[in-house]
């Protein structure tokens, strides 16, 4: 059987809110090392990769590798019934066709049990090679969310450029154009408010803003976001999940004709 008990149940709630509108049905791959998920959106332009390590769970047991086929909208509906401070336990039998979610209130005075049917999803996984990216920018996640939202009101594609100065976001549309530059900034009190740029090669790529907007639904997961770019490769937008793993979004670039 598989069982995972997560003291910070809100993390799982936030993960579902971040991916339920991008991916419809996917397998949660459970093994003794934790829970992993890899899925593309319906247009195969974006890819989501989630890792929740077993060590991040208060209790974790997985006797046999299980691929739990789940409709994310339905799982989100059930997780919405959990309180933000609830402990969430996921459970599934090896030969079962359901998954159960148990929510325990902080002082254990309310225990909820939800059971959801599993689906048979034969998903193929893509091999994502380890890459030494030409540019890696870490910045406040709320800042990135704000920039993407603001640019989306002006245009539908963004040119993201990274130089040693910093990272720039540009767009244009019917009403005009916009360009936002965030400089490297390490002289702030809290580390999480820093913007750091690790650059090996200046790089500039073009992306559809509606996907970047969708990725920023994960902002609640981490105060920082890391953007990794390399010429002619998908951008990686990564939200680290403290002590557990990460939620990564890959977005294929738009190639000039």
């Amino acid at each position: 059987m598989f069982e995972g008990r997560l003291l910070q149940g809100s993390l799982l709630k936030k993960v579902l809110e971040a991916i339920k509108d991008l991916v419809t049905d996917t397998n949660f791959d459970c093994s003794e090392t934790g829970i992993a998920l890899q899925a593309m959106d319906s247009s195969h332009v974006a890819l989501v990769s989630l890792l929740l390590k077993d060590t991040g769970f208060d209790h974790f047991r997985c006797d046999r590798n299980l691929a739990l086929g789940i409709n994310l909208q339905n799982m989100s509906k059930m997780l919405k019934c959990a309180g933000n401070d609830d402990i969430i336990t996921l459970k599934a039998e090896d030969e079962g066709d359901t998954i159960t979610f148990m929510f325990e209130s902080p002082n254990q005075d309310k225990i909820s049990d939800f059971e959801m049917k599993l689906m048979d999803i034969d998903s193929e996984h893509l091999g994502i090679p380890d890459t030494d990216y030409q540019a890696i920018v870490t910045m406040p996640s709320a800042e990135f969310q704000r920039i993407v939202r603001d640019l989306s009101s002006i245009g539908d594609t963004a040119v993201i450029g990274v130089t040693k100065e910093g990272i720039s976001f540009s767009t244009g549309g019917d009403i005009g154009k916009a360009n936002i530059v965030c400089r490297q900034n390490t002289n702030v009190d809290k580390e999480e408010d820093q913007t750091t740029v690790e650059i090996h090669e200046p790089v500039s790529l073009t992306f559809a803003l509606r996907y970047l907007n969708s990725f920023t639904k994960a902002t609640a997961l981490s105060p920082q976001v890391t953007l990794s770019l390399s010429k002619e490769l998908p951008i990686v937008v990564e939200y680290k999940i403290e002590k557990m793993g990460f939620l990564r979004f890959y977005l294929a670039p738009k190639i000039e004709e």
């Binding site: 332009v45 091999g127 994502i128 090679p129 998908p234 890959y250 738009k254 000039e256």
Partner: peptide, 14 residues
Amino acid sequence: GGKQSLMSTFFKPK
């Protein structure tokens, strides 16, 4: 700007 590429251009099925 430009033509949207697909994920399968960059990452191959395992």
